[in-house]
Design a protein around this nucleic acid. Structure first.
Lengths: 256, 256
DNA sequence: AGGTAATCCTACTGGCGAGTAGGTAGCGCG
DNA sequence: CGCGCTACCTACTCGCCAGTAGGATTACCT
């Protein structure tokens, strides 16, 4: 599916450093995501990048530096995609809903990024753990802030930080796990998966078992687009997903 | 932290094979959990186990076989601990609650096992993924069965498998993630953490922000008291769930 | 053109770690 | 006792891979 096949016969075309660095990073994410940090070799990365090994070292430093850079880049992309997707001027449930949609949209459109972030980075115990923990921390903070904002949690007037943080950790973990499950069951659209998680964490099993389901407010969500004109880079591609996919969900009210 | 004694000076005492195998497995879990599969070396494992390398190969085969065996053993221990902890004759919410308590109790009392299972195994893409996926699958099935049983899910008369399975995956992931968070914030007792997750997945944020909390049936305030010694028969050592103190209890030992 | 600096290469080193060959020590048993 | 068996060892081989030395090509500028 990834078509990074420069085929490496003979000498590579001369390119400005910035472009090469990008190619290398793309190749590195690809290889790391498939093989994991240790099993990935610099030789293979250089081959996929269509370049020779010393270039890696000249441009991106050691293997560890390269990996850390990958994590930093991909995590930033993801956090931004989510932050852009959240409709901050809406009530709490809608904010959560939009955040979940953005998250699953990103995962669906950037599987290698996701793999590198979730699986590989978390299992290495070096400086990467730090990098990854930062990303996770940012995500968790986003969620925690949302929770704290949306009316204080009931039983924690003082330890609210810990309370919200742990709940956010659980939610993030649920999202990660569900995203992994989704990769193994890709026949379902992102919106459906996001809706399931939304129902779980907002309504809870208690309500679900009783037949109560959460619904998005029945208005058209503004297709939030990037307004900044000086943004030359194309925004990260996220799978399009709108309310239509939500409806695709097995019809809630009609039991049979 | 781990007092894996042997100190390996000269020849090791002669021991029957079964005992050695156990020592080796314990050492392997310890090292794998700290270093991960690739970074762990057979030399180090043999050193920790207090024997020489050829013994590893004579008894447990290759490095991959050893690792797979570790995963199998630890995952079985955990599944059994949880299955034993679930009070199957209770209503759904109580079942879920007892399962969560058993899970967090196990994690608290068997950190290396947990590390090996959750972090290391999931990131290697060999036959281990299979082993690990089996474990996860069993856990998810447990939860899914509980969900399906506890009154059918409302909106899934036909696609119930997928629905329940994905929700179970999300729940399991939330548990895993919260367990990881807990390892970084060990000052909180297991019961509190379990109660948080219970509230999240049973009540949902919607109820929580509205001030509604889930309570175990006979007692109030799940986080303030959890003293009932309803431990019938712990097959594996599981941390006591009352918050008296378990900041850092001595590591588990497998002695005969 | 010719200089020069960035880009790119082939071909090595050095170390680490999986796995093994081939031998030594304790224990039981006739 | 000596025969054998099992537990146990030291001391290698061998391949893989991170990282580098040193040289060959361009692109671009004057």
């Amino acid at each position: 599916m990834h078509a990074e096949q420069p085929v490496r016969t003979g000498r590579a075309k001369r390119l400005p450093r910035a472009v090469r660095e990008r190619q290398i990073m793309d190749a590195a994410v690809d290889v790391f995501s498939r093989l994991g940090f240790h099993a990935a070799s610099m030789d293979e990365i250089s081959e996929v990048a269509g370049i020779s090994k010393p270039m890696l070292y000249a441009y991106l430093g050691s293997k560890e530096e390269l990996f850390a850079t990958c994590i930093r880049r991909e995590s930033t992309r993801m956090i931004e995609a989510i932050a852009n997707g959240v409709e901050t001027d809406q009530p709490a449930d809608v904010q959560l809903w939009s955040g979940l949609r953005a998250f699953f949209g990103f995962v669906g459109g950037n599987r290698p990024s996701w793999q590198v972030l979730h699986r590989q980075a978390s299992s290495q115990g070096g400086p990467f753990a730090q990098e990854l923990a930062d990303m996770r921390g940012r995500a968790i903070s986003l969620v925690a802030a949302l929770l704290v904002h949306s009316g204080d949690l009931p039983d924690v007037p003082r330890a609210g930080d810990k309370e919200a943080e742990s709940l956010a950790a659980a939610l993030v973990g649920a999202g990660e796990s569900l995203a992994d499950w989704w990769l193994d069951n890709p026949e379902e659209p992102a919106g459906v998966v996001a809706a399931r998680l939304m129902n779980l964490v907002w309504m809870g099993f208690g309500d679900l078992v009783a037949g109560n389901v959460w619904h998005p407010p029945s208005r058209r969500a503004p297709e939030s687009s990037d307004q900044s004109p000086d943004h030359t880079e194309p925004p990260d591609q996220v799978e399009p997903l709108d309310e239509a996919e939500f409806q695709h969900q097995p019809e809630s009210e009609h039991r049979s």
